[in-house]
Amino acid sequence: MNILAIDTSNETMGVAVLKEGQLAGEYITKVKKNHSVRLLPAIDQIMRETEVNPKDLDKIVVAKGPGSYTGVRIGLSTAKTMAWTLNIPIVAVSSLEVVAYQSAYLNKQVCPFFDARRGLVYTGLYQSNDKGNVTLLWDEINISFEKWLERLAEEGKPTVFLSQDVDIHKGLIEEYMGDLAIIPESMYHLPRPSLLALAGAGKQPDSLHTLTPNYLRLVEAEAKWLEKQEKSKDD
């Protein structure tokens, strides 16, 4: 089974190639540069070096967000088009789940998150067990980080916090969670595309045409419009 995994959903960009189920190559950067410019050259390079032709691929795995709307769409349009034209299955994995996989085998509660500005985050709560499984405990949500941390503190369990944006929120996490917060070094926070491939390998394929990003948030104009519709219904 040859798998191409693509993650452009956040600042960390990753591409991995699994050859016959084994990791053959992985490309990962965390730089503030354009994913649209760099994604295909990265795919091209890694596939050449691992000597996997597009026609040899059996599956595409893609990170579907949450994250940067534009970033998620770059990955998804690339992945969907490749899966469609090569006629192979596509599997989309939540970008938060990919981050949570960084803590596989740790046997702990894991809170992956992405900064969503104005005090908000995209987050969810996962449980990692000692068999390498990572399962969702609390649904993914776009929420005020303080509110979320309040709930976690009430729960009172040691929690691993993983995020490329951890530096911005470290103080807040420690304020709410105190000793319950486990925050590793920066290397552990970046979602690895090989783990994206691993997470996707065990999942059922998505339906190609209807696969859409995991935005976790309505467009502002649409939210306002819906609100107006609701109001006029009440009147």
């Binding site: 649209s36 994604l39 091209d44 597009p54 769409r73 770059i74 349009s77 088009t81 034209t85």
Partner: peptide, 14 residues
Amino acid sequence: LIGVNTAKALAFAN
């Protein structure tokens, strides 16, 4: 960006 990335993926894969 949607069109550009779609076109790139299509051209690359084939």
